[in-house]
Measured scan of single mutants.
Amino acid sequence: MPVRRGHVAPQNTFLDTIIRKFEGQSRKFIIANARVENCAVIYCNDGFCELCGYSRAEVMQRPCTCDFLHGPRTQRRAAAQIAQALLGAEERKVEIAFYRKDGSCFLCLVDVVPVKNEDGAVIMFILNFEVVMEKDMVGSPAHDTNHRGPPTSWLAPGRAKTFRLKLPALLALTARESSVRSGGAGGAGAPGAVVVDVDLTPAAPSSESLALDEVTAMDNHVAGLGPAEERRALVGPGSPPRSAPGQLPSPRAHSLNPDASGSSCSLARTRSRESCASVRRASSADDIEAMRAGVLPPPPRHASTGAMHPLRSGLLNSTSDSDLVRYRTISKIPQITLNFVDLKGDPFLASPTSDREIIAPKIKERTHNVTEKVTQVLSLGADVLPEYKLQAPRIHRWTILHYSPFKAVWDWLILLLVIYTAVFTPYSAAFLLKETEEGPPATECGYACQPLAVVDLIVDIMFIVDILINFRTTYVNANEEVVSHPGRIAVHYFKGWFLIDMVAAIPFDLLI
């Protein structure tokens, strides 16, 4: 008679799926529990143990900040960024110097990925580790590398530091407007667009060049630039800015003055950032001319202004700041037409079709709590990747769950009947059967004279019903998954307890 339990259901295979997918890609990662103190490590794979030199037993239950890997060259700011990422709910990448158990130093890129439950609360953290440099290539500990984003994938490793954006290309926007319009339909740009040429040739750093990471940081200074100062900065030398009595002219307006920039070969870094931020506020060169004239017309309804409409929906549905990093990277690809469009465009503009998908598509409701890094690593669709929660398995109709209350009560009843059979069957065979043979035949009273025979008949009927119930009862397979398919249940029961239950259900007393 089957006594099969499996009270692990309803099970959740999400954690096993993450481990299996990460292991298949030869990654070095740990999984931490966000619900406990210090976000203790609950799993670390073999790749991480080989990377740091510690065994799994030495890593388990330690804080996922990996303070046991810190050393003299470990930056405090990087460690603080990892700790801050564990307090938030967004994906974050941090470069930090770690030390192995043998004392060797290596520069590592740590990717902190939160995993949320159905309520939107962070319950786990996945920390992925990628070695960037070994100890002989690690720089000085005073050099802070965590304020910069990861290198873009479309640049060669040897040319990542030679990417320079020439400031004269930004200063000569109005001069290039006529050349853009003359391109017409034969050019790649839309009317009114501004073409910015980027020099990728390796050259020595000069005062006129600005690194790509500095251009990325310009967006942080746009908020500090007032509207009046932006307007004066875009007017140009024809209309000098008016300053109040006793007030000095704005240095932001002076930063885009061609006369002032041409007199000296070098520009201050602050002026460069502010000038680029001011130019980015204009949607095209037409807006710059309109600002000089004193009238700013409404933005025209053409394809170039609607190019950012799908980007707005993608940004609203993005799951991490990696989408913004990807957008900034692609927006700086050289030799393309940049349409400086305000994100607050007309909502009635139709979304044009684009061959290049900048932001990841909208994630469906079932995966809105899973970050983009987890979705990318697992390579699963929205119909396959579940949320991290207890999910009731989908069972067929008329199927009994093996952990249901009805099955528990039924098993206790069958257990009592088995005990009765084990006690009274030998007793009936030894004593009652002998008395029946010696006594007179009682054929007239039937079952009324033999109450134990009636009980034995009921017990046999219950055993037959138990066999039928076992054909529709779920079970737990070797992978700790609840199986509810009727065919698989029948095959599993035939290979197991079916023969024993059938022999126990045969009414031998009635056959004798």
Rank of each mutant, 00 (worst) to 15 (best):
V341E: 03
R5E: 14
S379D: 04
P258N: 11
R269C: 14
G294T: 12
V341T: 11
V115T: 05
G88T: 14
R62V: 07
I123Y: 05
L69W: 01
R271K: 09
G224Y: 14
R100D: 01
A142L: 08
S209F: 04
G88K: 14
P241Y: 15
L86P: 01
K166N: 05
E90A: 14
L225P: 05
G183R: 08
L107H: 14
R62G: 14
L127V: 09
G184W: 13
A57G: 14
P297E: 08
A185M: 14
R252K: 13
T162H: 15
A290Q: 04
A172W: 04
P2M: 04
T201N: 06
H221P: 10
P352M: 03
G24S: 13
Q84P: 01
P251H: 15
D199F: 01
S26K: 14
R77W: 13
L378W: 07
S178M: 06
L248A: 05
D355T: 14
V115P: 01
R77F: 09
V138S: 13
T145S: 15
R326F: 03
G187D: 15
K373D: 06
G187S: 15
N339V: 01
V196E: 01
H70V: 07
A293W: 13
A277Q: 06
A121Q: 12
E274A: 11
D111V: 07
D16A: 15
Q81K: 11
Q75S: 14
I123R: 11
F163G: 14
G24L: 08
V374M: 07
L109F: 15
D355Y: 07
L155W: 15
K362L: 11
A277N: 13
S284Y: 05
V279K: 15
S261F: 12
M308N: 05
P150S: 08
T367Q: 09
D219K: 15
T65C: 10
L296R: 15
I359N: 06
Q84K: 12
H221Y: 08
A79Q: 10
V341M: 07
L87V: 14
M308T: 06
E214D: 13
L315M: 08
A204V: 03
K28I: 09
V279P: 06
M308S: 12
P310G: 09
G184M: 11
L127Y: 01
D355K: 14
N128F: 06
V180G: 09
A83K: 08
R242M: 11
F125A: 10
G294V: 09
E23P: 01
S275G: 09
A40W: 05
V59G: 01
V196H: 01
R76W: 05
R269S: 11
K373T: 13
N146W: 15
P10R: 11
A350Q: 07
R92L: 07
K28M: 13
P237N: 05
E357S: 12
P297W: 07
S239Y: 07
I19M: 06
A9D: 15
I96L: 04
R328Q: 11
F106Q: 01
A382V: 06
L338M: 15
T152V: 12
A121Y: 10
R328V: 05
Y54L: 01
V370Q: 05
A293Q: 08
S153I: 04
A260Y: 14
P297Y: 07
K166V: 01
I359S: 11
V215C: 06
S26H: 15
V113I: 13
N45W: 01
R56C: 03
K166A: 06
S261T: 06
S263E: 13
A97T: 12
A260M: 07
L296C: 07
P114W: 01
R301E: 14
A9L: 06
M124T: 09
G88E: 13
A89T: 13
P386Y: 03
D259V: 11
T201F: 05
V384A: 04
C39S: 12
P2D: 05
A260R: 11
S255N: 10
Q75A: 14
M137Y: 09
T216Q: 05
V36D: 04
N220C: 08
Q247F: 15
C105S: 14
G158L: 14
N38A: 14
E230D: 06
V196K: 04
A9G: 15
A282N: 14
P300D: 14
D213C: 06
V279C: 12
G192M: 03
V279E: 13
K161N: 14
S379C: 05
T174R: 14
P361V: 04
H309Q: 08
R366P: 07
I42P: 01
P299A: 04
D323W: 07
G189P: 15
